[in-house]
Design a protein around this nucleic acid. Sequence first.
DNA 1: CCTACCGATCGGTAGG
DNA 2: CCTACCGATCGGTAGG
Lengths: 190, 190
Amino acid sequence: MSRLTRDDIIAGAGRRFATHGYHGTSMRDLGDDLGILGSSIYAHVGGKQELLVAVIERGAGFFAASARRAVEARLEASATLSLLVSGHIDVVLDHRSEARTYLSETSFLEPLDQARVSHARDTYEAVFVDVIARGIAEGVFDRERDAKLSAVYILSVLNTIDRWFDETGRFDKDQLSEDVYGFVTKGLIG
Amino acid sequence: MSRLTRDDIIAGAGRRFATHGYHGTSMRDLGDDLGILGSSIYAHVGGKQELLVAVIERGAGFFAASARRAVEARLEASATLSLLVSGHIDVVLDHRSEARTYLSETSFLEPLDQARVSHARDTYEAVFVDVIARGIAEGVFDRERDAKLSAVYILSVLNTIDRWFDETGRFDKDQLSEDVYGFVTKGLIG
DNA sequence: CCTACCGATCGGTAGG
DNA sequence: CCTACCGATCGGTAGG
């Protein structure tokens, strides 16, 4: 039991915020999880709101990095979308706490932080919109589909995966990615 | 300004819970919204947790009623799914507060209430699974698709609609329903 | 539905 | 990171 680092505190805060919500978490709850007193947390961070910012910033960073990797692979539209899907799934499953807090607690940030995070989210979404629009332009995706709406639908599916997917179940992450990609490209009819 | 009813209090609680979360709402906040004191709310309801139960129960009821209507129409699988989609969209847009609280705050219910609501949610989801399985069996949907996974994907899309859809925008609710149904059945490729 | 409260808990600080 | 606090706010109650 050595001393905790600032990163440990942020990780602990992420776990609590993801499961109990920002307002459902007290500094004493958080201290209990970490094996210290609530008041001791102030030796590491300025306050509760600063913890929320740090957790959400981490979450946003993972998604941004995934989008960057997908785009920099410079593949055709459908392959890029496939990378975006599997990358997003990796983030929500490998960084559950940060991703869930980013997705669910952003409205509890102070206005300036919230605006910055919203902008990051728009930028990320735009990567999906652009690749879908490219696919439509190239004729691989249906010209009847709207790129923006389709991106929102796909992100809705991806952002909910951590809520139901059990990694110890019959499917693994790769099978899930493939199934999601198959669903969003071919639909129920196939 | 006549006296408030119990229903008024529950409606007000729904609005607050949907936007600020259960733990982000104080009885005084709620009183302010309703034009009375926080302590006056106890003349109408037993407590804050009872309000959460009442709001979520309403939300669950709207979804159950929609599923019942879709099933009782006794149409073929694809038409039933279309009714489920448009019915779900009606619920999340016409009863935003109750639907959002039901979808986001259920984990803050006490164990017994939470179990009951989870069961209701499973029952609702099973209606989607069954109609998709029927469509697969009849050959209208792809035999490669898993009914359960597909239902979860579709519900993910539907449950997020209230977060981004602007009814005053270029699309109306019917166009949205049709687009969502087109997306989940035909996918990006069409 | 208000007045006037209550004990518990909250985020946070001074000093070590 | 703990001790020892602080003022503010919380859910809730008695009595009218």
